[in-house]
Amino acid sequence: MKAALFATCLGDQFYADACADAVRLLRYAGVDVDVPQSQTCCGQPAYNAGRKPEAIRMAYQTLDTFDSADYVVLPSGSCAGMIRCFYPDLMNNELERAQDLAARTYELSHFLVEVLGIRDLGSGLKGKRIAYHHSCHALRELGVCDHPISLLKNCGAEVVSWEADEECCGFGGLFSAKLPEVSAAMADRKLDTLPGVDFVTSTDGGCLLQLSGRGDRHRLSVQFRHLASVLWEGVGL
């Protein structure tokens, strides 16, 4: 099976190692991974800022990049949600192509479970206590809920219950810079309710930047790690 990895702009710069781990994971699962070089940004920052014309331009860039891929896999629920849920509306001139891309696009753990039918990756997380943060867009736009959690559990991890696990971390892209005080309070709500764990993981680098940035400010010792890296560790090679 062939799939193209869309590292996303944020992944490329800030979670490069996690993107590399996503490649390793996919290869381990028998996928022939390609990384098209013309990929840049899905356009979500512009879209959420109310700038549709700019978002449309980036959407076309992405559409052209991944036109020929069998599947497009992203280490991000938020960018995958942008393509799956909003591209068809944005590109009504090319509705069929947009819908086709949307149908082929998956967040990484979603792809592993739904498309590849993987349940067990390995046992590399034995003895680890992990808190899973639901990225809002993975959870509510894509319906990715149990997929990552079951993969983590099947790697031997204990995924602890967390009162605020489904609450927004306060990242929200530009939101976190426009209204930094409220955004930080939202992260604090997550961190204040966080049980004792070895690390926090999530499908999305944006959430992790927010939570780790705020955690670091509070001098918390807990680690915030991208799901791709945690799952790769779970393979236990």
């Binding site: 590292a7 710069q13 590399a20 990384v35 930094p180 005080e181 992260a187």
Partner: peptide, 25 residues
Amino acid sequence: DWVKERSAPKSSKKSFMQQWKEGIE
């Protein structure tokens, strides 16, 4: 405004695209 409330994001040493070009083991 971001760093007012949080520590700054830490960039990866090498971008993913760079890593891909160099080959991922």
